[in-house]
Design a protein around this nucleic acid. Structure first.
Length: 480
RNA sequence: GGCGCGGUAGCCAAGUGGUAAGGCCGAGGUCUGCAAAACCUCUAUCGUCGGUUCAAAUCCGAUCCGUGCCUCCA
């Protein structure tokens, strides 16, 4: 694999060949959630999109250091804490635990580390101090602001014009801020604590970090001055990521991140799903009635930068597709279990054919992570597998090769454990299945169907095949 | 106003110069005692108008519609 991965870089607005700083190693920072609520499917999309990219980079042989933060100091958390009569840390801890439950269900791989603001205060203060020393920040009435005019590249990521931003901001900023800020576009690095707010001691008095500074500090702390990939939702491009660049590059004098990746939104009725609009679906609620793996497959149904329209029927469609993959794997395994009747040896022509599928999958992913095209190839593989299983003389090793290929590629999409060996059945049920076979042999189809229906009522589905009875348990959520 | 994204079959969604991937749904068929699963076949000329070209969904111009960021938001 000598070809380079191409990825779309928000910074240059172009697809670029991906060349990490160190050969075979990738440093990646993805902005994590502010933990004052459960995550919704829009948040999940971001997590899943970059998890898939991370998994793909690992598949391509890179060692990925993958950092996601938790914002656990923030206005909304403070507000939630007051309302719930808890400390901010308690609120954060609660929603962090909930976050893991949600993303674990989606098959998201754990990050290398999950830094939290509360644990990074000292480093944040030191970082801000350095910015002040270098003239890029100033203290004002207990707050500290970033001096935007001191950073000549401001706006390079979002491609916004500083003068226009200044105009826009000047109309919005209130009188109090006017007094405190040198320029309306300056943003807070440190906020003076209001009464009854959580605070830390600092050279500027009691206060807490602003929103943007944490990511600059954590990325620097865990990944160094320059990182390979920085990612997040499109809505973070401005101001969050723009400000991160300003802070980090002003401090270090080095490029903060070489590649900026931004995922598109999940929409509801053609509108962006967002907490502020209130039109969101919590993962926690969706998981009650929808298979999380189907949700994950749904999230792979469009390119990560494009909008993705959420609907129950779309998830249902994904569930049907997921079942198609699972059924094919199950049927293949069923045939393998009849290995006495299978031929030995491997079909070299099939091996070659399947290398082509693999290559096409890689080509799709190499081109800015076109998962929806990669998934299309998986469906072609499923079709090819199903056809092969129907051949008169399939060989054991060939089937195993196909299963292995499918599982590897589907695993990159975070869909693992799609095949579970059929659980052992109760003796009673075994008896019934045997009885049904006898009934069928005796052409007593009424009795045979009766038993099949009875077992179906217990969630065990029987399928008659040329290679004996196949059964599986239908369980879990149905997505109906 | 500035900076973007998108308009492809009933639905979702690829395709960025050579006569439209894949999936869902639907119809028909094969296999099966039936069912299930699977397989096979069928279903589009690409928002509109104009231009460039031997050739355009794909390039250029115009236009209509939807939508995102510019303030917290994945």
């Amino acid at each position: 694999m000598t070809k380079l991965i191409q990825l779309y870089n928000t910074l240059t607005r172009k697809k670029e060949p991906f060349v990490p700083l160190q050969e075979n190693k990738v440093s990646m920072y993805v902005c994590g959630p502010t933990v004052y609520n459960y995550i919704h499917i829009g948040n999940a999309r971001s997590v899943v999109a970059f998890d898939t990219i991370r998994r793909y980079l690992e598949f391509r042989g890179y060692e990925v250091r993958y950092i996601t933060n938790f914002t656990d100091v923030d206005d909304k958390i403070i507000k939630a804490a007051h309302e719930q009569n808890k400390t901010p840390k308690e609120v954060a801890d609660f929603y962090i635990a909930a976050f893991f439950e949600d993303v674990d269900a989606l098959g998201v791989k754990r990050s290398t580390a999950y830094p939290r603001v509360m644990d990074t205060i000292d480093e944040i203060i030191a970082f801000i101090q350095e910015l002040i020393e270098k003239g890029h920040a100033y203290e004002s009435f207990g707050d500290v602001y970033f001096r935007t005019d001191s950073f000549k590249d401001y706006g390079k990521l979002s491609h916004l014009d500083l003068d226009q931003l200044r105009q826009g901001a000047s109309q919005r900023v209130d009188e109090e801020e006017w007094e405190k800020k040198e320029s309306p576009v300056d943003f807070a690095l440190w906020k003076k604590a209001k009464p009854n707010e959580i605070y830390w001691e600092s050279p500027w008095g009691k206060g807490r970090p602003g929103w943007h500074i944490e990511c600059s500090v954590m990325a620097n702390l865990y990944l160094g001055d320059t990182i390979d990939i920085h990612a997040g939702g499109q809505d973070l491009t401005f101001p969050h990521h723009e400000n991160e660049i300003a802070q980090s590059e002003a401090k270090t004098g080095h490029t903060f991140a070489n590649y900026w990746l931004h995922n598109g939104f999940v929409t509801m009725d053609n509108e962006k799903m967002s907490k502020s609009l209130g039109n969101f679906k919590l993962m926690r609620d969706l998981r009650q009635t929808m298979d999380p793996q189907a949700i994950r497959l749904f999230l792979a149904s469009a390119h990560y930068r494009h909008p993705l329209s959420f609907s129950a029927s779309a998830i249902h469609e994904a569930k049907v597709q997921l079942d198609r993959i699972k059924t094919a794997l199950r049927n293949a395994h069923h045939l393998l279990d009849q290995s006495a009747t299978l031929q030995e040896g491997i079909d070299e022509a099939k091996v070659q054919e399947w290398e082509i599928y693999r290559t096409r999958f890689i080509d799709a992913m190499d081109d800015d992570f076109q998962v929806q095209n990669a998934v299309a190839i998986i469906y072609e593989m499923i079709n090819a597998l199903n056809r092969y299983l129907e051949q008169p003389r399939p060989t054991k090793e060939t089937i195993e090769m196909m299963i292995s290929q499918i599982q590897t590629l589907v695993g990159i999409l975070g869909l693992t454990d799609l095949y579970e060996a059929p659980e052992l059945l109760d003796e009673e049920i075994e008896q019934l299945i045997a009885e049904r076979q006898a009934a069928r042999d005796a052409k007593d189809f009424a009795r045979a169907d009766e038993i099949r229906n009875q077992l179906a009522a217990e969630g065990i589905r029987l399928e008659d095949t040329a290679n004996g009875v196949r059964y599986h348990r239908e369980g879990g959520v149905n997505n109906e």
